[in-house]
Design a protein around this nucleic acid. Structure first.
Length: 255
DNA sequence: ATGGTGGCGCGGCCA
């Protein structure tokens, strides 16, 4: 069995105790983190290695930042998308065993009329091109992370209220579908066709307590791996802890 | 409700 998870931690400094507890409890083979918000020099490498894991990271001060925690060695690390000159640390590609792992923190986009929304769409197009290229080299590929896109209306607590808003708008959903069309499955939907399997809840308005959430955190597996996927679930437990991240882990298991 | 909460870091940006 191979267990892989993704978690937007919204500051590794604040959430390190949650992450270490979660590793101990769930023993994943791989955990991809987003929004670490920390430069590489300050990353808590020793604490994670002490838990029996390897770790790779690409961070920056205050914003963004991604990391991969893995039982097995992390090889062939990539931190930038081709043809995108960008200081924002949003991608960490690595090979673990024979699988290519792409950990992504997709831009939020702010609002559909923002220049940040155009940046988001451009970023997704560049990601798609990169993924297509990676498939020429690797037969096993997983793209996981905070996509900042709810793929369908059933991934939104109130689709009518969110219609045409950033995180659910058609253009960004289409950009995600263009990646899926390369031959990927949204592993959560291999098993669960219901609404309510959310992975993010706003800190405001008691949104978690009221389950006013979105499913933004995805684990995409190419067909070869999707055939071996046995389970994909959202672990809501960390969202109910003291001082939680606004996102909670999503976990997939492969035979 | 042009608000609300949280992280960073100490004013204002970002989500």
């Amino acid at each position: 069995m191979f267990k892989i998870a993704t978690w937007n931690v919204n500051s590794i400094k604040v959430r390190l105790p949650h992450v270490l507890d979660w590793l101990k409890k769930h023993k994943p083979d791989v955990l991809a983190l987003q929004e670490t918000k920390m430069t590489d020099e300050l990353f808590p490498k020793a604490a994670i290695e002490k838990s029996g894991y390897h770790v790779a990271y690409s961070g920056q001060k205050t914003y963004n930042g991604v990391a991969i925690i893995s039982r097995q060695p992390i090889k062939d690390i990539v931190t930038d998308l081709p043809k995108l000159d960008d200081p924002q640390r949003r991608l960490l590609g690595a090979t673990i065993n024979k699988a290519r792992i792409l950990n992504v923190y997709v831009p939020n986009g702010e609002s559909v009329d923002s220049t940040k929304y155009q940046y988001k769409l451009d970023w997704l197009k560049k990601l798609r091109d990169y993924v297509k290229q990676q498939l020429n080299t690797y037969s096993q590929c997983i793209i996981l992370g905070d996509f900042n896109i709810a793929p369908e209306d059933r991934d939104v607590y109130d689709p009518a209220a969110w219609e045409d808003h950033v995180l659910v708008s058609e253009a960004e959903r289409k950009a995600l579908r263009e990646i899926l069309k390369l031959g990927f499955c949204d592993t959560f939907r291999l098993f669960d066709q219901t609404s309510g399997g959310f992975s993010w809840w706003d800190y405001r308005h008691f949104a978690f307590r009221r389950n006013l959430g979105l499913r933004l955190d995805l684990i995409l597996a190419n067909k070869t791996l999707a055939d071996k996927c046995k389970r994909c679930t959202v672990d809501k437990t960390p969202r109910s802890l003291e001082r939680p991240s606004d996102h909670t882990p999503v976990v997939a298991e492969f035979e």
